[in-house]
Design a protein around this nucleic acid. Sequence first.
DNA 1: ACAGTTCGGGCCTAGGCTGT
DNA 2: ACAGCCTAGGCCCGAACTGT
Length: 350
Amino acid sequence: MADPKQGRGRSTLAPALGHIEEGAITQAMLSRALRQRLGDLAREAKPPRGAGLTSASASSAAAAAATGAAATLPLFPSCELKVEPVGIEEVLPGGILEGPHGPLFIHERLYTELGERPFPLLSNLSALSESDSTGNGFGGHARFRRRSRARDLPEIAAEVESPERGLFRRYGHRRMLFLDIETCGLSAAPVFLVGLCMVGDRNLVLRQLFARDYSEERALLEELARLAREFDFLVTFNGKSFDVPFLRDRATHHRMAFSLELPHLDLLWMARRRWKHMLPDCRLKTLEWHVLRRRRAGDVSGAEIPGLYHDFVKRGEPYRLLPVFHHNLLDVVAMVELIPPLFDPDAVTY
DNA sequence: ACAGTTCGGGCCTAGGCTGT
DNA sequence: ACAGCCTAGGCCCGAACTGT
C-alpha cells in the first residue's frame, strides 16, 4: 500500500506497489534502449502474444510486440506513416504486477501530484467518522456546527443519522475504497481499467489497474477482489446499478469466485435526494460543475472510450489512451470531493 | 443501446378516533 | 356497539436516470 504521508512530487511507485514482486518492478524500469531491443526482437520473431517469454519479461517486450507490431497506417495515397509500437508503460509511470492469473499494469499517483491540496478535504472526511451529539457529520468544525436554538420538526428530522453517515461512523473514512471502472461497452463487454482511491492521513492514493489487452481482464479482476478485501466499504457513483453488477458479470464470464460484498455507498442516490430539484440532472459532470465548481477541459466522453481501447489493443499508440486514464482519475477524484458537500447541510450549488 | 436501482404515485388494509 | 371517516404504513409497478 502506498504511503500517503509522502510529500508532493516524491516518487510514489515503489512503496505504493509494495506487494508487487521486485522483478516485475525492475522490469517496468528497463532502459529505453533495452526495451527498444526487446521490441525489435519480438517483432522479428512475431510470436503469439507472450509466447516464449517469461512472464516478467513478457509484459514489456510483449507489450511492445503485442500493441501492434510496427503497424503501418495509410494516411495519404502516396504517404505511409510508420507507427513505432510502445507499451503503455512508455507513456505512464507504473509497474507490472505478476499475479497468479497473469500480468497487469498498475499506475499510481498521489492526490497532491495532481496539483490538488489534500486539506481541508481530508479533515472534512475525517470529521465524518467522528462522533458528535447532533448527528451532524461535521461536529468538530465550526463551519458545519449547528447553531444552538429552537428548531422545527423538519430540521430535527434532517439531523437523524442517515445510513450513509452510519458507514463513516462505523468504519471510519480510512476504511473506504472509491471505485470507478471503464469498460468496452454498457453490457457484456470487458472491463479494462479500474480506478481506485484510498484515503490516507495526509494524502489520497489514486491507483489504476489496467488490462493491456482483453486477456488481462481476469488478472485485473483478481487484483481488484484482493484489494477490496482490505477495505470495509465501497464508494461509487451509480455503482449499485453499473460498476458492481458489471464486475460480477465479468467474473462469471471468467468463472471466477468474485465477491464485492462490501457495504456500498452509492453517491448517485445521495446526490439525487439532495440536489435533484436544484440541478438539471445529477450526472457526475454536472455535480462537478455545480457543486465542486470545476469544469473538465478536454475530457473524453464515455461513449468514445470503448473505441479508444479497441484501437489501443489493435494498434498500440498508448498515448491515445491517456485521456481515458485522465477521465477515470477525474471521476474518482470527483467522488471523493463530493463527500463533504453531500453531508454538509449548508453546502451550496451554483 | 442496456440494465439495475431508486423514487414516487396509486391502491389497499388496519387501526384509531369520533359521532350517533 | 356500530358506522363512517381519516391517517399511516406496506406493497406493487412504472418511470426516470446513470454508467461505458
